[in-house]
Amino acid sequence: MIEIKNVSKSYGKVKALDNVSLNIDRGEIIGLFGENGAGKTTLIKSILNFISYKGEILLDGERITRKNIGKLSFATSEHSFFPDLDGNAHREFYKEHFETFRERRFDGLAEFFKLPLNKPIKKLSNGQQNQFEVILALSQGADFILMDEPFSGSDMLNREDFYKVLMGIIEENETVFLSTHLIEEVSGFISRAVLIKEGQIVGNISIDKLEQQGITLTDYIKENYHYEEDRVSKALENMLEGDRNNE
């Protein structure tokens, strides 16, 4: 389990995370939602110890260090592969550095997505690079797979394929923590939704509970974000009124 306890992070005067507490249990697929700048990436980078923060994050009761960080894998829209190397070289690197590397899963996914493993990754299309990024995260053999908008720039069919693969291969002891804007697309397979707004967790609910309440994920998010449905019409009205006054 990942326990996030009272974690805060500031960039200058801007609070990116404000006293965030959250537990990520094993075997869940969790969606992390929030607008741009809400703190999703900062939260994931804090879990991975890529940035300093106040508070405590424990992985199975221990602080995250180089010794246990192998239990976490990471896929990001920024990409974390080695662009000059080909897929085969990545396989060798991961085999050597991650004891739990799942070679069969790697080869199987690469074959499924028809990714050429003898071509430098930088020569692949953006969609293929996203696929490769996620394949690496899924094949590392990590207990917790953290994904930060891994499908940004991928087309819908490409993403759909991935959702199917994700649902098909994720095992009971594997946990996926997926930060994304694609609320409706992922609502069908996540088990829990976590909402973050201005660095604070403003919602944390299981999908089962939402279904029991008869609320869709999109409505739940809008409600917790205090989204004003008539926001756009009001703004347009104000603009038109301004134009009329000027005339």
Binding site: L48, N49, F50, R66, K67, I69, G70, L72, S73, F74, T76, E78, H79, S80, F81, F82, P83, D84, H97, F98, I121, K122
Partner: peptide, 19 residues
Amino acid sequence: FFYYRGSVSAYTMKRISNR
């Protein structure tokens, strides 16, 4: 800076056991 060019592969290097 190779680890920050074309991707942020430094993230991968930060996740291996040998710092």
